[in-house]
Write a protein that binds this DNA or RNA. Structure first.
Lengths: 221, 221
DNA sequence: CTTATTATGTAGTGATTGCTACAGAAGGAG
DNA sequence: CTCCTTCTGTAGCAATCACTACATAATAAG
């Protein structure tokens, strides 16, 4: 048998017209950097085309419009972060959260790209624009938050958190810490300072009773 | 003796020309609301003049330019928040921080004005603009943060925190929680959710040994 | 009154915004 | 080669941006 076509996503046949002269993924990566450092509104199409090395018509042909490009950028940013930090695999919920926060502290202060978190920038700078953009960003962030909450809930099931833990409140709290770290990084906070904040935040983790409750009473008696 | 001029701030003599037809403080209050909801860049001069009920020349005559107006708005916002929440007067550092966070949770979700924190909006939306604006906002926020840290340090001196507490890390942490609460509020978080976050955050407060250290050893022995 | 000074409303300024019309270039199909 | 399709660069669209020139109105001083 020869060259059986894989069942994969794309037949990937060459289209008919003139081929694109730039790498779409690479251009998107450049756009991510611009949005990451400036947010949505402050990043002009001129900024974007300059960074991407293309002209406006190429941008609009490949990505639709500025809003769609932004949404795609945020989406891929989330994917990238998720791929590079599979915190759910940690053995306990506490270790998972601590790892997530620790890796984000490193990401937010990595000098090879803009500081802080693109998702946070997106949330703030899209809160004044079209409802569509607002909803897309909110949905993207809600999904990331849901993943975090699921990991915490799994921790409750597996017994590394007290059974009556308020997982929603815990999720809200650590999500807020993440947002706070992002802003701190943008204000010039160092990686060391962010890592210290992670340790402080982990002190809020619910105490697992050292012994089961029923034996505690017996010990006192 | 008659009409001895007080040594106070302003002689307040009527100026020579045509009097201003609008209330400057009230106009500034309206500008604060616009910036609060849109940030710096997304708030256009047209938005501002419409909300303030004046025409552009009046705005520029009274406030200089958009940047100066923004700085004055953020400054007064900080003053207002500081006045309405004198948390430093609480008896312990822990109560002071808890009160600050609690009142901010209420402020950020108050429906009589835009949600979240103007200072946080200012920080994010000015990070892409002129260095002057950036520095002014950063200085304003640094001052607020310094006040928080001083209250915590006072707590260490007065013995309601362990003597070796890392006050800088604590300040960073609670400042980040505040920023995170602001973003959460803008994402639609309820007051209840924010108050729950405050309680969670307070669990990270350093444990004060119930008994002095020297007696603890004796008790164990 | 006249004069000086300041504020106001109208109506713009040039620059920048997101976006696109258009002509030509670069490929596949026949 | 000729068609057809798609992409690229130039050049420019209407709308909006922050900001202001200018004539007039309103006050105090003389």
């Amino acid at each position: 048998m020869k060259t059986l076509r894989p069942a994969g996503p794309a037949p990937a046949r060459r289209p008919r017209g003139r081929p694109r002269a730039f790498d779409r993924d690479q251009a998107l990566a450049r756009a991510i950097e611009v949005f990451w450092s400036k947010g949505f509104e402050a990043a002009s199409v001129a900024d974007l085309t300059a960074a991407m090395g293309i002209n406006p018509p190429s941008l609009y042909a490949a990505f639709g419009d500025k809003e769609s490009l932004f949404i795609e950028a945020v989406r891929r940013y989330h994917e990238n972060v998720q791929m590079s930090c599979p915190y759910a695999g940690e053995p306990t919920a506490r270790l998972a959260v601590e790892r997530l926060l620790t890796e984000l502290a490193a990401l937010f202060t990595d000098r090879s790209h803009p500081s802080g978190c693109l998702s946070v920038m997106a949330m703030v700078t899209s809160s004044t624009t079209s409802p569509r953009l607002q909803k897309c960003i909110a949905a993207e962030r809600a999904e990331a938050r849901a993943r975090l909450r699921e990991r915490i809930q799994r921790g409750v099931k597996e017994g590394d958190l007290p059974r009556d833990s308020d997982t929603a409140a815990l999720t809200d709290f650590y999500a807020a810490v993440i947002s706070g770290m992002s802003l701190q990084a943008r204000e010039g906070g160092t990686r060391k300072a962010l890592l210290a904040m992670v340790q402080t935040a982990m002190r809020a983790w619910p105490e697992r009773a050292k012994q089961p409750v029923r034996r505690k009473a017996a010990a006192v008696a």
